[in-house]
Design a protein around this nucleic acid. Structure first.
Length: 1131
RNA sequence: GCGCGCUUAGCUCAGCGGUAGAGCAUCAGUAUCACACACUGGGGGUCGCAGGUUCAAAUCCUGCAGCGCGCACCA
């Protein structure tokens, strides 16, 4: 490091070292390494995204963890990559193409052309954020860079879909989903944000009709609604059956205004009589609750709002084509004209909005693919809810252990699989409180709508074909439900046990067999089946299976199956699942087509079975999937209720690769999160058992924001268990949200989001990292201010200059510290260094990076630079021996036992201490400030005596510092007495400087001090004091008389005087002393009160008592001194 | 409605049972030979409010208020 610039210039340094690290392959993980493992996968940023402050926070933390792990001697994999971000990316590209006039709607281009544009966009913008991460200094293994749309990754997604489909966890169905009319796609529940909205409650009057269908004059039913435009699709008015005001009306009709059609008044428990008028308009096709009522009451589903948010022809000529917001106004206007608008109230309510496009969500009945979440029990059990040993340690009574199963069942398990999967280890969230949020979500999850009506993404690996192909065999199948089956269970395991007990108790259990995919299937006896079928009037029952986690029974009739046919049974159950949620009890005719290649295709026709007792045979499942789905009465042909379940008449084929001719793929793509939930293992080569996977899975830490705890974290955990049989990571660090100084979220529209790259250009990446980490406490939001980066820059500059100071002293790196030559200041800084190492290492263990930076800041700036470096100048400037302090006759033995030595030897020893401290400090700083520490590590020559792989080539692999152990402390003579003495010395200096200031003497003026010591001070100590006081002379005189014009203070090492020879402003000095005295007396009073309390004396620990007594003595001594000085001043 | 978090100096936060701390800002002084991206010194807080436990409470408990977040939701 020659010709060191005065100020640190980060730009060239940072690029130089980043290139060096990359070239040397420093970030590349080696699966064959014998070292223990540290792994972390990046939360993949949007492939076309740009680096923002959130990325800076998140990736800085990951880089710090990765770099620290390397220094700890771990084999580190930080696996980077990007996400295709379906909706976001497609929206951006669509917008651009529209702007460029290349299309108005994507349909203009067609799927293939459009996707070409997206890929082109990806090629152009996809690498930007990676380059930006490099600018930040991220030590990712770029050789393993992955993208969620890579061919290998896409195959993982397909494979997972097929697997889950085969297990019956993925199904297709028509349901009310969250529809985004702007993006024109379905969304999952997690993508809907409830926004408090100021709206209105419109009270509408629906004219009552008499039995003949004629309006009864002046008789109305009043309904209240927040969405008047939906009234065009009303099919009923509902009241509570117990509401006596309206019981008479149930069964009569009203006339739906504007549509001019009669609709019934129905009774439904759902209606809260207390709310509003107690009458609810029912719009089955446009509201989830109304949909449920519509199903219960067999109402038509009249669709008046289309997928684009515009009114359909069904809404009537006046409204068709209007946007839903315009339609609202128009409907209200018309109703007002007709005198049917009773009143309008202001009303604040929560409205679901699309997180993506921001528009209000439109509940819409449509056919989608759903996933019933796998491995929920494991996912719940593995996350520790408290700081201790947690819910299930995996060694104790785990709730998913085989021991809880009936023993007969356990006996039937195949050898070697005697247990249900047990979480092999636990996971911690940091901060812990997120575990509760996570658990709450997992206990309440509904099935995940995974299909999206987009083009950019993983296309659903499902193909359809028209019927008419060769049919090899055919079976007629009827599906019913064991109506009495008790199902008050919340977990799959409990449900299985319950099913077992239920069947066993009745003697209906024929056989249970292990199903590798789903756990257990049960075969039911003839009598059990007959009983079940007596409801439906079906005879000739042959065999049945119960899949208890679905809690329903499939019964096959018409043909005897001697052996259970697992695929068939499963398939039927899947079909049943798809149909069952509609609330209908159905007979299903299953057609099975077997092709020459051995594959089978199933299709079905379904129709409702009339229940023998006329009651609903539907029942609600207790475990989620069908919970809120309605049951319905018998009688309505299913086809009318569900127009095209599973694409009526089509065959379905679900597989990874495209089948032969004649098959057409499902047009929809999968939710982006359906690919990202595989990230921790799909990036490592799964499903192959790659070396990388074996070495680095499960990963160690995950760093991400709590806003995607459900979207991503929870789902990754489930996928980890489901496909790897183990959790994906052991710790999750949740960052805060980056906000601006005023606490507002950073956003483009507010313009309060600084560009990290500009900050890096201006201050350096290290400065940005340090500033960000310093202001980011664990789990708290970060109020970011450019000042923080400035502080980081200043800090780097300080570090730079401290090293520059060392360089200017010249000489080689001094490796040998001679204990006998250590000064008290040397020992002090070595102790402080050791303490800092302890604190920083502990902070790392708790993921408290801001504490680590605070400690580094304090240690390096306040302790090393401000005190140690300044004190060391007493030796380094070389005059400590030749020019001893003015002594007042005190002869100086060496109180700190300094051995005799030449000035050169002393100097060398001080440099050795400096080199020791700096080489340790650089390592402590390296995870936070990778570039500057590497530059200085080389520049200072600290690489020289290090082995190549432990810091000799790069600081990256230098060992993490350790604090001194007891032996080392003894070796160097580092004890508490030294610490106390040096602290007292520095306190004396501080007080002395205060005197100077009180005397109004500028800092640059050399002044004379006098010290009346109470302890023996070495010449070196006196030299240090003199130097740091910026004193011209320091007179040491045990009998110093003081005097009228002599400001003075009392310290632990003696009284210090500033003889001003009459220059002092008596009035000012009197004021200063009086004020100080006042303060001292207040302190004394405080301590005395405590000490005078007999309870305190009796009950407080002796140590505390002694502390208080000592403190009192100190204050009293100071008081005496101040009183004396005051008296002198006045006398 | 349920749950979680926060409330300490002008600002951002640390402290989580025994003398109220840091950084920034502010005021005063300083071009001294590592650093003015610096150095020196000062001022500034009844630790949200009210109870309780304790010899002792910013720190533990209870209640309340304000702010923020998450979940749920009846038109």
């Amino acid at each position: 490091m020659s010709e060191i610039p005065k100020a640190y210039e980060p730009q060239a340094v940072e690029d130089k070292w980043y290139a060096f690290w990359e070239k040397e392959g420093c970030f590349t993980a080696n699966p064959a390494s014998p070292k223990s493992t540290y792994a972390i996968v990046i939360p993949p940023p949007n492939v076309t995204g740009m680096l923002h402050m959130g990325h800076v926070l998140n990736n800085t933390i990951q880089d710090i963890l990765a770099r620290k792990a390397r220094m700890d001697g771990k084999e580190v994999l930080w696996l980077p990559g990007t996400d295709h971000a379906g909706i976001a990316t497609q929206a951006v590209v669509e917008k651009t193409l529209r702007k460029e006039g290349k299309m108005r709607h994507r349909d203009d281009l067609g799927r293939e052309k459009f996707l070409e544009h997206v890929w082109a966009w990806k090629e152009k913008h996809g690498g930007i954020i990676i380059q930006q991460l490099k600018k930040l200094g991220c030590s990712c293994d770029w050789s393993r860079l992955r993208f969620t749309m890579d061919p290998e990754y896409s195959r993982c997604v397909q494979r997972v879909f097929v697997e889950l489909y085969k297990k019956g966890l993925i199904y297709r169905g028509k349901r009310m989903v969250n529809w985004d009319p702007a993006a024109r796609t379905a969304l999952s529940d997690e993508e809907v944000e409830m926004v408090e909205t100021k709206g209105h409650l419109w009270h509408l009057k629906y004219p009552r009709l008499d039995a003949a269908g004629q309006p009864i004059p002046d008789q109305f039913v009043v309904v209240a609604t927040t969405r008047p435009e939906t009234m065009l699709g009303d099919e009923a008015v509902a009241v509570n059956p117990k509401d006596e005001r309206y019981t008479k009306l149930v069964g009569t009709k009203v006339r739906l205004p504007l549509q001019d059609k009669p609709i019934p008044i129905i009774a439904d428990e759902f209606v809260d009589p207390q709310f509003g008028t107690g009458c609810v308009k029912v719009t089955p096709a446009h509201d989830p609750n109304d949909y449920a009522m519509g199903t219960r009451h067999q109402l038509p589903f009249t669709v008046v709002i289309g997928p684009d948010g515009k009114m359909t022809p069904e809404a009537g000529d006046r409204f068709a084509g209007l946007d839903r917001t315009e339609a609202r106004k128009a409907v209200v206007e018309h109703l007002e004209k007709l005198g049917l608008l009773l009143k309008v109230e202001d009303y604040v309510h929560n409205v679901g909005h699309s997180q993506r496009s921001g528009v209000p969500i439109e509940p819409r009945l449509s056919e989608q693919w759903f996933l019933r979440y796998p491995a929920v029990a494991q996912a719940r059990a593995c996350v520790l809810q408290d700081g201790g040993t947690g819910l299930s340690s995996g060694t104790g009574d785990s709730p998913v252990k085989a021991g809880n199963l009936p023993s007969e069942l356990a006996d039937k398990l195949p050898a070697g699989t005697g247990q249900w999967p047990v979480p092999p280890s636990n996971m911690r969230f940091h901060p812990q409180r997120w575990a509760k949020v996570y658990d709450h979500w997992l206990t309440n999850i509904q099935d995940w709508c995974i299909s999206r009506q987009l083009w950019w993404g993983h296309r659903i690996p499902v193909w359809y074909n028209q019927p008419g192909l060769a049919l090899l065999n055919q079976k007629n199948v009827v599906v019913v439900e064991l109506d009495e089956a008790p199902i008050p269970h919340t977990t799959v395991r409990e449900a299985r046990e319950a099913a077992w007990e239920f069947l066993e108790a009745r003697g209906w259990l024929n056989k249970a067999f292990r199903n590798l995919d789903t756990g257990y299937d049960f075969l039911v006896t003839q009598s059990g089946l007959k009983h079940a079928f007596s409801h439906a009037g079906v005879e000739n029952v042959i065999a049945a299976t119960v899949l208890p986690d679905l809690i329903r029974t499939a019964i096959f009739v018409g043909e005897t199956w001697h052996e259970p046919r697992i695929p068939e049974i499963k398939r039927v159950l899947q079909l049943f699942a798809a149909l069952r949620f509609e609330g209908a009890l159905v007979a299903v005719k299953i057609t099975v087509k077997e092709y020459q290649d051995g594959s089978r295709v199933y299709d079905h026709e379904a129709e409702k079975i009339k229940a023998s007792d006329g009651q609903s045979l539907g029942r609600r499942s207790a475990d989620g999937v069908l919970r809120d789905q309605p049951t319905s009465d018998a009688g309505v042909p299913l086809r009318q209720l569900i127009p095209d379940v599973n694409r009526e008449g089509a065959f379905t084929r679900v597989q990874e690769n495209q089948p032969g001719k004649g098959w057409e793929q499902d047009p929809d793509v999968l939710d982006t999160w359906f690919s990202s939930w595989l990230w921790p293992f799909a990036t490592m080569g799964w499903p192959e058992h790659t070396d990388t996977l074996k070495k680095f899975y499960p990963t160690t830490d995950l760093v991400t924001g709590p806003d995607i705890i459900f979207f991503w974290v929870a789902r990754m955990i489930m996928a980890g268990y489901e496909f790897m049989g183990d959790l994906p990571f052991r710790n999750v660090y949740f960052t805060g949200i980056i906000r601006d100084k005023q606490g507002r979220k950073m956003s483009k529209s507010l313009g309060n989001s600084p560009d990290p790259l500009e900050l890096i250009a201006k201050y350096g990446a290290d400065a940005l990292r340090f500033g960000t980490m310093r202001s980011a406490p664990l789990g708290q939001d970060v109020l970011f201010d450019e000042k923080d980066v400035e502080l980081g820059r200043n800090f780097c500059n300080k570090l730079w200059n401290a090293c520059r100071f060392r360089q200017m002293q010249g000489g080689e790196v001094q490796a040998e510290i001679v204990p006998a030559l250590l000064t008290s200041d040397d020992k002090w800084i070595l102790l402080k260094l050791s303490q800092a190492i302890e604190e920083i290492t502990a902070a790392f263990a708790d993921y408290k990076f801001n504490e680590a930076t605070a400690t580094l800041y304090r240690f390096f700036w306040s302790e090393y630079c401000d005190w140690y470096v300044e004190a060391s100048k007493a030796i380094l400037s070389g005059n400590s021996q030749s020019e001893p302090a003015q002594s007042g006759g005190v002869d100086h033995p060496q109180p700190d036992g300094l051995a005799p030595a030449t000035p050169e030897a002393r100097k060398a020893n001080t440099l050795a201490v400096i080199d020791f401290v700096l080489s340790h400090t650089l390592r402590l700083f390296h995870p936070f400030l990778p570039h500057i520490t590497e530059e200085l590590w080389h520049g200072m020559g600290y690489t020289d005596d290090m082995p190549e792989d432990q810091g000799g080539k790069t600081i990256l692999f230098a060992p993490w510092p350790k604090p001194f152990d007891a032996d080392e402390k003894a070796h160097y003579g580092l004890d508490d007495a030294t610490l106390t003495f040096v602290n007292a010395k520095y306190d004396l200096i501080s007080q002395g400087r205060n005197l100077r200031r009180a005397g109004n003497l500028p800092g640059n003026k050399k002044v004379r001090y006098a010290l009346k010591p109470t302890v023996e001070l070495s010449p070196l100590d006196l030299e240090v004091i003199k130097l740091l006081l910026h004193a011209e002379t320091l007179e040491v005189n045990a009998a110093f008389p003081g005097g009228k014009g002599t400001p003075t203070c009392r310290t632990a090492l003696g009284d210090l005087f500033l003889p001003l020879e009459g220059l002092v402003d008596v009035a000012a000095e009197t004021a200063r002393l009086s004020k100080e005295l006042e303060k001292i007396e207040a302190e004394i009073a405080k301590v005395e009160t405590k000490l005078n309390n007999p309870n305190f004396n009796q009950k407080a620990p002796a140590k505390v008592l002694a502390e208080h007594q000592q403190r009192l003595a100190e204050w009293q001594s100071k008081r005496d001194h101040a009183r004396n000085a005051l008296a002198l001043l006045q006398g």
